[in-house]
Amino acid sequence: MVTNYKAEKASYYKVLLGLLVLTAITFVQPSMFLTHYTFGMQMLIGTVKAWIILMYYMHLKGEVLIGWTVIFAVFLVAFFFAIVMIDVNYFQFADVSHITSPAQ
């Protein structure tokens, strides 16, 4: 039990270290590398961080039922995103719309 505690504590610190490193990368990325893809890179780093938090801090690792419910929810959000983004991507009225350019 005690060794388990120590091991878990150590893993918490390791995860903290990983997250701090990723946060540091978040900061330097826009001026250091792949600067034309800042948005994508930032979201990618965010996803990696989220993954680590979910798996280790939130103990999702090994949870089958709960894992699937999370996947289902994330899939739904992703689907809503996809459709709404398709809609805005094919926005047909940009030339005449007042929400893209103010009424004169």
Partner: peptide
């Protein structure tokens, strides 16, 4: 049922692409 909400928006100025999907 989660994926069909857009059929309420056929006359609201949604893009034709989204209308077709919905």
């Amino acid at each position: 049922g989660y994926l069909v909400w857009g059929h309420h928006l056929f006359t609201s100025g949604m893009s034709d692409m989204a209308k077709t999907i919905f």
